[in-house]
Amino acid sequence: MKELVEYIAKSIVDAPDQVIVTETTEEGVVTIKLEVAPEDKGRVIGKQGRVAQAMRTLIRVMAVRKGTRAQLEIV
């Protein structure tokens, strides 16, 4: 799931080398943390949070297939 978020984020920001994605699992919940350059934050969140929402939808689909739960945090 980390790779998916990383690919999408790097493809839509101006500073792809500053994209950092980490994945941790705790009590069956996968947490993906996405960190980007301050200037790129708006891009990965999107108007009214639409881009973040779209990424959440996609990782949720993956999580359901794997039988786990996943959440995306943008920091």
Binding site: I12, R50, A54, M55, L58
Partner: peptide
Amino acid sequence: GQTLSSLQQVVRLIVSHR
């Protein structure tokens, strides 16, 4: 069609950014 819409949105964004 929500997943499809999300997928489309991300693809459009990648294309327009590139």
